[in-house]
Design a protein around this nucleic acid. Structure first.
Lengths: 222, 222
DNA sequence: ACCCGACTACTCTACTTCAAGTACCCGCAG
DNA sequence: CTGCGGGTACTTGAAGTAGAGTAGTCGGGT
């Protein structure tokens, strides 16, 4: 169950969509896709039906009616309950007010970046910069296309996305620069590690020597 | 199995840590915690052992020996294989070069922000700004403490984290401003929706009227 | 008249994650 | 010398996630 909060954000989108009007699950998918909200949460059938079932069990939503057309599977229409509205408000408020740390995969990658040789790292980062640039251009284009059609209010999240992408580009560019001009501290160690690889693996003795030379113990305890 | 790539980033950290030297799983935890890398990937025992088992099954790592002290559970020491090194390089390269979209919960929250009344939204966003400020201050403090002790190379990911937080603050501040001074398009609709709530729910007729007034269909098809 | 591909509306299952639990060891305060 | 707080090292199970699979409808071409 998406135990409020910390559960699947899709559940929040479902609550908010049902807040506007009762729907059956598949209709939720269509509504969200029409509004381009399918990129604002991980949306897939498996999760959707799980989430809807969980919300029903938690009395945040309830079945209104079951209709059926021809021999198609029956469609269960749900509506939000008062408890559901309360949950929606509380959950959303917390998500907005409380920035809890999430860990993007790129951050993990950066934390182990020294396993790549410096030249390769800066090369790959430059590639990333150009790809991010494409994404930003695409977002800007879409934004211009929707301008006047859809009020900004309805695409705050895409502004946010753009802001994040721009910050990413700026960071990656700075990092590439710092690697290339050697202004980052630790560059000597980094280069040395990759100069003394045997078999694609770091040589422990060189590693230790290299760290010692910098007055750094690689593994303080042990 | 962390089917490369798209698997659990923890598996990448494991590979990289074993690249330096063979270890048993618990030792990996200690190493990562000593280096403060436990905030750079979701680290917990359940996932760690799953990930190690999967890597072994995929021949990226292999058991070197099983030691035992007293009656404690046996410790299985693993080392990385050549295939593992290849996988590590490929996976890391892809993570660095290819920015694939991840969806932070806050983005989902923004996508449904209009369900909160504007004043409440800006209030909560202001709270977020101050909390983010605290986080940034904490990061800066830690950064200063480590300065000179640990080279920048070893804390790139925390620089990245800081850059992201700063971008978040900037965005949230802009958004608060745009809500307060009404410069965002759609503000009239937003206010109107919350003025005409019955029972905490939007009134469909008012909703439709409000959208029509702006020349917007709330649900294009249907 | 019937086949094809696209859409509708779920369902199933294999996989992943994580908090909590287990079971042992050791040092040391009372 | 006893118990207990903290560390070691893993295991389990309950829940969540995702993507393929299923089974029907509908309209358009030949």
């Amino acid at each position: 169950m998406p135990r409020n909060p910390g559960g699947n954000p899709l559940a929040l989108m479902v609550l908010c969509t049902l807040w506007e009007r009762p729907s059956h699950p598949y209709q939720l998918v269509r509504t969200l896709k029409e509004r381009r909200k399918d990129k604002s949460a991980r949306l897939n059938y498996g999760s959707l039906y799980t989430v809807v079932a969980a919300l029903e069990k938690g009395r945040a939503i309830e079945a209104v009616e079951v209709t059926r057309e021809g021999n198609l599977p029956p469609r269960t229409v749900y509506r939000i309950t008062d408890a559901g509205i309360a949950k929606m408000n509380g959950w959303l408020s917390e998500l907005v007010a409380d920035p809890k740390p999430e860990i993007p995969a790129f951050m993990t990658a950066l934390s182990v970046l020294p396993v790549l040789p410096p030249e390769r790292a800066s090369e790959l980062l430059a590639l990333r910069v150009s790809r991010l640039g494409e994404e930003i251009k695409a977002l800007e284009k879409e934004s211009r296309a929707l301008d006047g059609e859809v009020p900004e209010l309805m695409r705050i999240e895409s502004d946010y996305h753009q802001a994040l992408l721009e910050a990413e580009v700026a960071f990656a560019e700075r990092l590439v620069q710092a690697i290339k001009d050697g202004s980052m501290s630790g560059m000597a160690v980094w280069r040395q590690i990759h100069r003394s690889l045997v078999d694609g693996r770091p040589d422990f003795d060189s590693l230790a020597a290299v760290f010692a030379a910098d007055g750094l113990s690689p593994r303080p305890g042990d």
